[in-house]
Design a binder for these strands. Structure first.
Lengths: 206, 206
DNA sequence: ACACGTCTGGGACAGTTGACCCACTTCAGC
DNA sequence: GCTGAAGTGGGTCAACTGTCCCAGACGTGT
């Protein structure tokens, strides 16, 4: 084993833990499984991190911050709000389909954090981040398509996250691609109803 | 301990397991915790049930079947589709708020079942039941309010379940009552757009 | 009254877990 | 070059887990 500063090991362990959780589930993410995935001796674990729970905190933060990089590419090709929403939701679901374990890992981590007093503050922060990300997307889409949203953007953002969560959960359970596609179609209709064409050729204010 | 037939013990164990999971989480639902909750000696566990996983299967079925009794009372007081949807969603969220552990238990069980090969068929069945329940509600509402739905009822049912799941997940995470209420309000607007007044004074066909 | 299948429950087992001790090696600054 | 701090890793621990055994108690059909 090469000598690696503790902070780096900590990050590597968080990454390895996420890999294990996505592949085998949170229950299988024992300290031994994590260090095996990271290729470290067991003792490195508690040298780099105080406890397993503390590492899981790192894992959640790892995913939350890494998530902001994924989205936003589906807006470019859309010409109508309905199309933008449908493409974004479809793109998101495709992302879920391409690696279902990862998304399942997020749900498992959230549920576990809710049950663990030391981590009980994490889910709120996690969803604040989701909502902020959705709000950014909505604002970007509005400016791109020269529209405005008829309800407050934070409200619509929460509704969008609600839809993605529900969509994901149901698809993970029954893997019904066709039904999920139809749900997205109808959801896009519903959400697009909150789009309003801007009167003049002018960008939005906020 | 009184003498109780094995089948009854099995049911009592499933009920006790649900109580433990709702209170302390799935990870805390050990065989010992379950029999303690049920007031039985440990050995009764494997006398009544072959394995812990098999009991969890019972637990899921227990909740899925028991869930059908809960809904449908919110439709009675509504006079418009929008009101019916808003009241149903609000009623559902109130139910979640009154016992968050129970709903969390459902999510945990679903995630666990997805990870466990012997239980991997359960989530699909679980969601089939949810969707059927929502479809029944939609049909009842339509007949009551003399409307029809402009998209297939199964499609709208899935969208409704998507919304309740997403709503629940976000509320469990951030406990933001006001934001959840606003989300329900907007969701009701969106879903009500799929309602169409029936031309004549006639009931729906399906 | 008797015997047999049903049920009880104390005890035990092997395996796994999170945690951590401690003797060691390495490296950076003096 | 020396030294003290930083990092390594083998080994170990107590606790807890799901599962099982077996001797006994019960109650029912005969």
């Amino acid at each position: 084993m090469p000598r690696i500063p503790a902070a780096e090991r900590r990050a590597a362990l968080a990454q390895a833990a996420l890999t294990v959780i996505a592949r085998d589930g949170l229950a299988a993410a024992t300290t031994r499984a994590i260090v095996a995935e990271a290729g470290m001796p067991l003792a490195s674990f508690h040298y780099a991190v105080a406890s397993r729970d503390e590492l899981l905190r790192d894992v959640v933060e790892l995913v939350v911050t890494a998530e902001g990089t994924a989205a936003a590419e589906f807006l470019q090709t859309a010409t109508t709000p309905r199309e933008a929403i449908a493409k974004s939701l479809t793109g998101y679901l495709d992302h879920v389909k391409s690696d279902p374990g990862n998304e399942q890992a997020m749900f498992e981590l959230t549920q576990y954090a809710l049950r663990t007093p030391q981590l009980s503050d994490l889910p709120a922060e996690q969803y604040r981040s989701y909502h902020a990300l959705a709000a950014d997307l909505l604002r970007a889409g509005a400016s791109l398509l020269h529209i405005e949203w008829s309800i407050p953007v934070p409200d619509l953002a929460r509704l969008l996250v609600t839809l993605t969560d529900g969509l994901t959960l149901a698809w993970l359970a029954d893997r019904d691609d066709a039904a999920a596609a139809r749900a997205i179609d109808h959801a896009a209709d519903a959400v697009a109803a909150f789009a309003r064409r801007l009167p003049a050729a002018q960008a939005v204010t906020a």
